[in-house]
Design a binder for these strands. Structure first.
Lengths: 246, 246
DNA sequence: CGCAGTTTTGATTCATCTCAATTTGTGTGG
DNA sequence: CCACACAAATTGAGATGAATCAAAACTGCG
């Protein structure tokens, strides 16, 4: 029988957003002490479930919170008035969505679930408040934002200097590496997005993406069955990246 | 004769990095009270002058500080092992450099002065310290980072979906708008970078950039004499952007 | 004044896009 | 459980925008 000052386990875990979460080390609580994570628990209010295809937020929505992906897979995209659009990123469990909205207090892109997903709502004013108290949280949040900038630079590099097959190889290697960090197989995974979405992200048409997949398969680099990808020759894909254009 | 508690003006202005700076409203001190700006003054230690062509930092350098441009013009670029490189941005007075280094504690790109320049060094640990005390500083810094992310998304859009002339038009309009915000003419300005650097930023070859300039001139949209640009038809440039590809 | 770096312009090539047809896969309702 | 409709993916042929290669003109710096 527990002592009166011991809170029954299931009662805490109901509230505990972060302290019981297995993504802790990939997400915002990284590097915090137990006590500090407990403070984050109080901040991370609601969870929200999204069905595949549902918007988490839309361009133009007022910015109020960041979102940590607990389960699922998202894309962000920008839609121009003339109908052109571009996928700006794909996000998976442990990654933070919504930082685009801080600067203007309005979201500048759309965030859409590519599979049934669940996210944790992190109200931004409260995150800033807690960041002023917890140094490690502040610093880690800055790192998360900075890494997003560096990631974007990588995409600029890809779009600005790489040819179609190099882009796709870089994309696959990046996904593989992120799946690995989440405990999934580096060689085998399921694409959650269509060829068109991949193309939009990589600045290519869907036919070009499809042709590149076929070519990789012919060359024995990967095997493709629809959205199921198996990487057969990791080194071969990497080699594609380090070759001169032309 | 001044009262004893009045500090002579030239003594304060010697130390005052931000409070006497005319870029205050474009830069980090935006939105701070006088007292708060005075606290920033203590933080912003050294100024540093750079000659044209000099590096402010290089990829691989340990990250220690952010830099605010006081005078001058910079580019940032990434160099891949295989020799490919990409200009990731051009920065002018009032803008903040170095945020790429926060995430990994190492700079991930090179920052190079495109003209003789002067920057203010903002040691990062001290900026984080002061951000924990000054809410407005914390919030504004978050906005600055977020805007960098949104800017990068714009470049991704440009590289992913626009044709050569659209990219160049977008580039010129962006420069024009930023010069305007700094009190310079929106119609007339001097490019600080070469055609090759513009091309690298826009994902084009220098010949393509040159041809697009010539075409704009033929069509009466701008006049070009080497690096001197005069925008003759702002609306015409804007119209170029809102047209479907193909 | 001469030379190196930059820019312009032309001719040709090539990667990717476009258009089109077909195949494959997925979800729904009878 | 199967059939149907619709969405996604593959593949081919031809068009096209930008790259490449090449040469000439211009600029500015020592």
């Amino acid at each position: 029988m527990p002592a009166p000052n011991v809170i029954p386990l299931n009662l805490t875990s109901l509230k505990a957003a972060c302290s019981q979460c297995n993504l802790r080390e990939l997400c915002l609580p990284y590097g915090l002490t137990e006590d500090e994570v407990a403070q984050l628990d109080n901040l991370v209010g609601a969870r929200r479930k999204l069905k595949r295809g549902q918007h988490l937020y839309r361009a133009g929505d007022p910015f109020e919170a960041l979102y940590a992906i607990k389960i699922g897979f998202f894309k962000t995209d920008i839609l121009l008035e003339d109908g052109r659009d571009q996928v700006t990123g794909f996000q998976m469990a442990g990654e933070i969505l919504g930082m685009d909205g801080i600067g203007t207090e309005v979201h500048t892109c759309n965030s859409i679930a590519l599979e049934d997903s669940e996210i944790c709502v992190i109200p931004f004013p409260q995150l800033e408040h807690l960041s002023r108290e917890i140094r490690a949280l502040q610093h880690h949040f800055h790192k998360v934002m900075s890494r997003e900038i560096v990631r974007d630079h990588g995409v600029m590099m890809l779009l600005g200097t790489m040819r179609a097959e190099e882009r796709l190889a870089a994309f696959l290697l990046n996904l593989s590496q992120r799946f690995t960090a989440r405990g999934y197989s580096p060689q085998e995974f399921h694409l959650r997005m269509t060829r068109e979405e991949i193309g939009s992200y990589l600045g290519l048409k869907l036919e070009t993406v499809s042709r590149a997949f076929s070519r990789f398969q012919e060359e024995g680099l990967i095997s493709v069955h629809q959205k199921h990808i198996r990487i057969l020759d990791n080194a071969g894909l990497k080699k594609l990246l380090s070759h001169q254009p032309g």
